Simulated scan of single mutants.
Amino acid sequence: MIKARIVVTLKNGVLDPQGKAIEGALGTLGFGGVGAVRQGKVFDVEVEGSDRAKAEADLKAMCEQLLANTVIENYAIQIA
């Protein structure tokens, strides 16, 4: 079994209204000096088998086809 974490974030230059809302809420809660908050998604995935190269290729295909909107999002795959 191969375990991986996929982190999906918005590309630079893409507006992030949710990040701005979080930034404002943090300020309201008294956390001063917080700026440039960007939100994203994290997926923890287990892939059967022990072939790391195949797992990495499958994980990349998952990102390209479903987990990330590659027009506006970047993704990073971390294999444990």
Rank of each mutant, 00 (worst) to 15 (best):
T70L: 14
V37E: 06
P17G: 09
A80T: 11
V14I: 15
M62G: 11
I72N: 05
A36M: 10
P17S: 11
K11P: 09
F43T: 12
P17L: 04
G49H: 09
K3P: 00
K11A: 01
L15P: 00
D51H: 10
D16R: 00
L10V: 02
Q18W: 00
P17E: 07
V47G: 10
V71N: 09
D51S: 13
V42N: 04
I77Y: 03
I6P: 08
E64A: 14
L67A: 09
Y75F: 15
L59Y: 01
L10I: 05
K3T: 10
I6F: 04
I6Q: 08
R5K: 15
R38H: 12
Q39S: 07
E64P: 00
V42K: 02
K54V: 15
K11E: 06
A25S: 14
A21P: 09
L26R: 00
V47Q: 07
G49R: 12
V37C: 05
V7C: 04
N74F: 02
G30M: 07
E64Q: 13
L26C: 03
K3M: 05
E56S: 13
K3G: 01
D44L: 08
T28Q: 13
E48N: 13
I79P: 02
Q18D: 05
F43P: 08
D51R: 10
N12Q: 12
P17W: 04
E64K: 09
S50D: 14
C63S: 11
G13K: 06
I79W: 05
A4T: 09
V8G: 04
A57Y: 03
T9P: 00
L29Y: 10
E46S: 14
G49D: 12
R38A: 00
G13H: 06
K41H: 05
L59V: 08
A68P: 02
L67C: 07
G33H: 12
T70A: 09
A36E: 13
Q65C: 10
S50R: 12
K41M: 08
G27L: 13
D58Q: 14
I79H: 03
Q39A: 03
V37D: 06
E23L: 04
T28D: 12
D58G: 14
L67E: 03
C63R: 08
L66F: 14
L15C: 04
G27M: 06
K54H: 13
A68R: 09
Q78M: 11
